[in-house]
Simulated scan of single mutants.
Amino acid sequence: MSLYDIEVNTIKGETGTLAPYKGQVLLIVNTATKCGFAGQFEGLQKLHDKYREQGFSVLGFPNGQFANQEPGSNSEVAEACKINFGVTFPLFEKVDVIGSQIHPLFKHLTNEARGVLGSKAIKWNFTKFLVDRDGRVLKRFGSADTPERIESHIQKLLDQPAKA
């Protein structure tokens, strides 16, 4: 199964897949508005705005599994992201990123890009997965990796055409 075939629901509850993002460079992030790393929303939005016209998108997937740092409903999350952080990049419904109910997207991402010491499990909020234009998960970044630190990796991928 391709990344683009995985079913996802938008933050508004609309069901679809990631197929509309085929051919784009993606940064897929598990987010939480009450997390100490929530300041990264601003940097993620800047990256999204700066490179959107070149075929780049940040995709946010809220998650409340780590210290319940995303306690709100999907509509509350959407509102907090917009009002508190100015987020306009695509947000999806809250999902599990670890455990027996892990969302198929995050199961795919963690199988394709391992963490520190080869671990699969996501350790905290704001883990980021960089996907190339062909849907390959190329790199995983931890919570402490700021959007600014990831920018050069995004630029390199944007300079490469899709192979498929």
Rank of each mutant, 00 (worst) to 15 (best):
A144N: 09
I28K: 03
V58Y: 06
G99M: 12
S152C: 02
V116Y: 12
K46Q: 14
R133H: 08
E112N: 13
N84S: 13
I150G: 06
S2W: 00
Q24R: 13
A121T: 13
F106N: 09
P161K: 14
E53M: 02
F66C: 07
P90V: 03
K12V: 02
A80I: 11
C35F: 03
P71T: 12
N111Q: 14
I28E: 10
N125K: 03
G36K: 05
Y4D: 03
V8R: 11
K34R: 15
G115N: 09
L3A: 10
L3H: 09
Q65N: 12
T31E: 02
L26D: 06
D49K: 10
R149Y: 03
T33G: 04
H48E: 07
D134P: 08
I83Q: 10
V77M: 08
G23L: 11
E42S: 12
V8I: 15
G13L: 09
V8Y: 12
F126E: 06
V25M: 12
I122P: 02
S57C: 13
G55S: 06
Q69Y: 05
E148V: 09
F126G: 08
D5N: 15
H103Y: 11
V77G: 01
G135M: 10
C81W: 04
A144V: 11
C81A: 15
F56L: 05
Q65I: 03
I102Y: 01
E42P: 00
F89L: 02
P20S: 11
D49P: 00
T110A: 12
I11S: 06
L105K: 11
A78C: 00
K107I: 00
A144I: 12
K107S: 13
G142M: 04
A67C: 02
N63C: 15
R136S: 05
S143A: 15
F56D: 09
S75D: 15
K107D: 15
L44W: 07
R140H: 10
S152I: 05
E42C: 01
K34W: 04
W124A: 05
A121W: 02
P90D: 11
F106Q: 09
V29E: 10
G16I: 07
M1I: 12
N125G: 03
I122Y: 04
S100K: 15
A164W: 01
T88V: 12
F66S: 08
Q101T: 06
N30L: 08
K50R: 14
R114E: 10
